[in-house]
Design a binder for these strands. Sequence first.
DNA 1: CTTCGAATTAGAATAATTCCAATTATTGCT
DNA 2: AGCAATAATTGGAATTATTCTAATTCGAAG
Lengths: 143, 143
Amino acid sequence: MISLDADSSPTPEELPPEIDGLRMTKQRREVFSVVLAERDHPTANDVFSRSQKRMPTISLATVYNCLEALVSHGLVRQVNFEREPSRYCPNLSDHCHFQDEKTGTIHDVVFKEGVNLADFLELPQGTEVSHLEISLKGRIGSN
Amino acid sequence: MISLDADSSPTPEELPPEIDGLRMTKQRREVFSVVLAERDHPTANDVFSRSQKRMPTISLATVYNCLEALVSHGLVRQVNFEREPSRYCPNLSDHCHFQDEKTGTIHDVVFKEGVNLADFLELPQGTEVSHLEISLKGRIGSN
DNA sequence: CTTCGAATTAGAATAATTCCAATTATTGCT
DNA sequence: AGCAATAATTGGAATTATTCTAATTCGAAG
C-alpha cells in the first residue's frame, strides 16, 4: 500500500512504477503529479498546460488518456459541475464540492462525522449505489 | 398561483398564456407539456423529437431556448449525470436523482423527512448555497 | 393597422472530449 | 541482449451537445 502524503506532493520521479495495478508511465506520472501538486481542481486543459512545462512533448490526448486511467483506477476523482468541463481532484476521502459562484473556485466539503447516504435519502430498497456526486454552488461569506 | 396537477399532464392548449412572468408562447407551451407529459427525464433531443410530432416546424434551437427559459424561471429542473447530455425534470419538489447503470433510466429520489444540508455537510461558515445537485448511480435490486 | 421588442428559425460555430491510425515504448520471453 | 507481443502515446480528425448569429416572424400595445 502506497502512502501519498497530502501535504508534500511527489515529483513525477518520486512516484513508483506501478500503483494499484496501473503502470505508471512517464506521462501518467507527470499528469498524476500535476493533479497532486495544486489541489485546485484543474480541468484537463489546465493539466495539459501544466504538464507541458516539464514535458513539452506531451499531447492533450495523452492527458485525457492518463486522467481516464487514473480515474478508473481510483487514484483521482473526476468532478463535474453542470455542463462545465470536468475537473480533477486527488482528494480520495469521502467528500463533495462547492463552487463559489463569484470566482468559480471549487472547495472540498466533507461530510459530518458518521453520516451515510441511507440516513438522508429515501432510496428504493435494494439499490446499490456505486457512484455519488454532490455538487453545490453558491456564495461564500461576504462576497 | 397556478396548480399543475402531477398526474394528469396538461396539453399545450391547457397551459396559461403566462407562468411566473414567463410568456408562454406556442413553442414554450409545447416544450413544457412534453416535459410534463412523460416524466422520464428526456434530453433536449428527446424533447425535440417529441415536440415535432405535434409541431413539425419547431427547431432544435427553439427547444434549447424554451428549456433554458423554463429552467431559469424555475418551472423545470435541469439534471446532469457526469458528462452525459442534460436531462429535464418537471418535478420541482426537493429531490435528487438515481441512474440505473444497467438501463440508464433515471429515478427521482426524495430526501427523508426533515433533513437539510447543514445536517450532513461540514459547510464553511457563511456559505450560502444557491444550487444543489446530487446524482447517484448504481444498480437496482436483482438487476 | 402599425410599431417594436421578443421569440423563433436554420445553419454555422464552438468547445470538450473521443476516436483513429501510425509510431514508439515497454514487457516478457528465449 | 534480441525480439515478438502488447500497451501507451501522438497528432489530427471526428464527434456531439450546446451556443451563437443574423434573418425572419410573431404578438402585444398603442
